[in-house]
């Protein structure tokens, strides 16, 4: 059974990435499609890396856009004059990731001393600090005028391809790490942190270490995505590079697809980014777009708080249990047991 499931997983991953690899080769002339896919894949990668902290560890970071901006600005600052043949920026990405991860460590160390509510407050403050810095640190960031990346010398007909495949690679990396987390001791430790951090600490799980690993890895990937984004759009403005909407995008997609699942964030991105493009197209530049986004957000939180994939798998499990003749209340008991850690986590005084 387990081997079968693993094989299904491999087939699913190969099919998914296979299709995405082929799409630009087949539809090479349709620029808008690769363009739209670049942003979809970008958000899928962002949401997958947010999921490492927000999903597996249960720490809802609202500050990840700061690291997106960090990656974007480091690209724009280093490659402001020339991109040296065009591929060097991609080669430099791992350095961006390492830099961002190193910067994220002290931030994570301070922020993760606190639990859910205050953690979100701290991380959102990190976002505001980053935005203030981007706006006011003129000599480095160019202030409100922004900073440009030199244009890439790629052939016009396949201009999008390098960016597309770079984003796809980042998505693969993010999902690979996500899968590794699920299969390894780190993932298990993170699950215990999410369920009941104090008990986990008590039984000897190295909670601080695993939390920081998850946070740093997550921020590193997000920074790399930011770097590719900056190179692709060519211009970095503080209000777009360090945008609360990017944070919200990651969070929302992860919640829609399902927190703490491998495919949930990807599914969420592939539903929401096209929807977002549609809103932007329908409502144009008017700010009703923002309102529509908030409305979608609220609907998801109120009616699908656990996300699509967990809801589906829950239903499947119940159906299977019923088919096997197991009494209904047994599965209820199981769900009650699985709900218990969440109750522990949300409040001491309940």
């Amino acid at each position: 059974m387990k081997a079968l499931l693993a094989r299904v997983g491999v087939v699913r991953a190969v099919a998914f990435f296979g299709v995405l690899v082929i799409v630009p080769l087949v539809t090479g002339q349709i620029g808008w499609l690769t363009n739209a896919l670049i942003f979809t894949i970008m958000y899928a990668a962002l949401a997958s890396s947010w999921n490492l902290v927000g999903g597996y560890a249960g720490y809802p970071s609202l500050g990840h856009a700061a690291f997106f901006g960090l990656g974007a600005y480091s690209m724009a600052i280093v490659f402001n004059g020339s991109v040296y043949g065009g591929y060097l920026p991609f080669v430099m990405l791992p350095l961006v990731a390492i830099g961002a991860a190193l910067i994220s460590l002290p931030i994570g160390w301070v922020a993760m001393r606190t639990r859910a509510d205050v953690f979100a407050i701290v991380t959102i403050t990190v976002l505001f600090i980053a935005q203030t810095l981007a706006f006011n640190f003129n000599t480095v960031t160019g202030g409100a005028q922004g900073k440009s990346v030199a244009p890439a010398p790629f052939d016009v007909s396949t201009y999008n391809w390098p960016f597309y495949y770079a984003m796809l690679t980042l998505l693969a990396i993010a999902m690979g790490i996500s899968l590794y987390f699920r299969r390894s001791k780190i993932g298990l430790s993170l699950a215990t942190v999410r369920a009941d951090e104090e008990k986990a600490h008590g039984v000897g799980v190295r909670v601080t270490a695993v939390k920081l690993i998850a946070f740093a890895v997550s921020c590193g990937i997000v920074a790399m995505v930011g770097g590719v984004w900056a190179y692709y759009v060519g211009f970095v403005y503080p209000q777009f590079a360090v945008d609360p909407l990017i944070t919200i995008g990651m969070v929302l997609m992860t919640f829609l697809g399902g927190r703490g699942t491998l495919w949930g964030p990807v599914l969420g991105a592939f539903i929401l980014v096209p929807a977002q493009e549609f809103f932007a197209f329908t409502f144009g530049a008017s700010q009703l777009y923002l309102f529509a986004y908030a409305a979608v957000f609220l609907v998801i939180m109120l009616f699908l708080p656990r996300g699509i994939l967990p809801s589906i798998s829950d239903r499947l499990r119940k159906k299977r249990a019923a088919a096997n003749g197991i009494l209904r209340d047994a599965s209820d008991a199981a769900s009650a047991v699985s709900a218990q850690p969440a109750a522990h986590q949300t409040g001491v005084t309940r």
Partner: peptide
């Protein structure tokens, strides 16, 4: 109020964030 189930702390944060965005959207419009 409808949120008061298992994960109130996280969900309410996000809901109020969405609320802020919604208010911003309406006011900008």
């Amino acid at each position: 109020r409808p949120l008061h189930s298992d994960d109130v702390a996280q969900l309410s944060l996000l809901v109020t964030f969405a609320l802020a965005l919604g208010v911003e959207g309406i006011l900008s419009f």
